[in-house]
């Protein structure tokens, strides 16, 4: 069953088309990464799916309920961690969790017990009575996450949950997300970090300028650059153009050159054959090389490639 669906979702703000027809299908129990640069439309999509904002056009369901027609039922099935830690700064961590628990209609005793359990689970037991204004960024984020898990919602939305966090706090948030998923929660996670979707997501949707420009598993997306890549680092910069020509002849593709690192790289299809041919051709030509590597592309490269193609031709849409 799909926990989240979107069909031809659009949202306009005046002349800005924040979402220009987005389709999405997230199977229950999976982690879906929504990847895109600043201003891509990630927050707008999350706000529509969490009933905070109306779509200009298109339909969406969450946990089987239409976000527009049954907002109350959607709200009863979701947790939202927005871009800013949405907690009361004056109250303590425990008071926050108790208050939200009461608003989820837990009884007084149950709300207190749940608050204590969550504080312990998120490593905030010792600081539970301190005002949130004294918390670090990571602690606030964890409290924020705890607050959205009070009723263990089946679908959780995380909008850039680790932006602005130090690496350690980021790791803590990742661990928390993994634990949730092990418990069967469906997670939609937006991020600008490729590493994050690489580590957490089963499926990734890349959006830019309000459009889906790619969707697939993180490894399938990496495969989209034409599978593996060969990088050649030459000893002398003057050999760079000759090396590029040589790689172009072997692969039939235009290599990327990086003068700063004296490097030429190109995507290859038949990895071993290409590698052998490259090494042989380099030896024949007498070009001195420092390094030849065969590797999988990083998601960063995929992302740059995808967003670059997107701004070149708006209509292009790749699916892995």
């Amino acid at each position: 069953m799909e926990a989240v669906t979107a069909h031809a979702l659009r949202r306009r703000f005046g002349s800005v088309e924040a979402l220009a027809g987005v389709d999405l299908a997230i199977p229950a129990g999976s982690v879906h990464g929504l990847l895109g640069p600043n201003g891509a439309g990630k927050t707008t999509l999350v706000r529509i799916l969490t009933t905070l904002l109306r779509a200009t056009d298109g339909t969406a369901t969450v946990a089987g309920f239409d976000v527009r027609r049954e907002p109350d039922r959607v709200r009863a099935h979701i947790g939202l961690v927005g871009q800013h830690a949405a907690v009361d700064e004056i109250l303590s961590g425990r008071q926050n969790l108790e208050m939200f628990g009461r608003l989820y209609h837990l009884g007084r005793v149950a709300a207190r017990a749940r608050a204590d359990a969550l504080l312990a689970e998120f490593g905030l037991a010792d600081t539970g009575t301190r005002a949130v204004s004294t918390y670090s960024g990571g602690m606030r984020r964890r409290l924020d996450l705890a607050a959205s898990l009070i009723t263990a919602p089946p679908v959780l939305f995380l909008d850039e949950p680790t932006t602005g966090l130090d690496p350690r706090s980021r790791g803590e948030v990742w661990d928390a997300v993994r634990a949730l998923v092990a418990g069967g929660t469906t997670v939609l996670l937006t991020t600008q970090y490729l590493e994050e979707v690489d580590r957490l997501a089963d499926q990734v949707t890349v959006i830019d300028h309000g459009r889906v420009i790619a969707t697939g598993t993180p490894s399938a997306l990496k495969g989209q650059l034409g599978g593996d890549r060969i990088d050649v680092v030459v000893a002398d910069l003057v050999d760079l153009p000759a090396t590029a020509a040589l790689l172009a002849r072997i692969t039939g593709d235009t290599p990327d050159t990086d003068e700063d690192h004296r490097r030429v790289g190109v995507a290859v299809t038949d990895r071993m054959a290409a590698l052998t041919a490259t090494v042989r051709a380099l030896a024949d030509s007498g070009i001195a090389v420092d390094d030849v590597t065969l590797r999988r592309p990083t998601l960063d490269e995929v992302f740059l490639h995808l967003t670059a193609t997107d701004s070149n031709s708006d209509a292009e849409k790749v699916t892995a």
Partner: peptide, 17 residues
């Protein structure tokens, strides 16, 4: 501005609260 209002609005509570 802190997003607390958004949290309230995304919860199944009375909107008058």
């Amino acid at each position: 501005s802190r997003g607390v209002t958004d949290r309230f609005r995304s919860m199944p509570m009375a909107s008058s609260a």
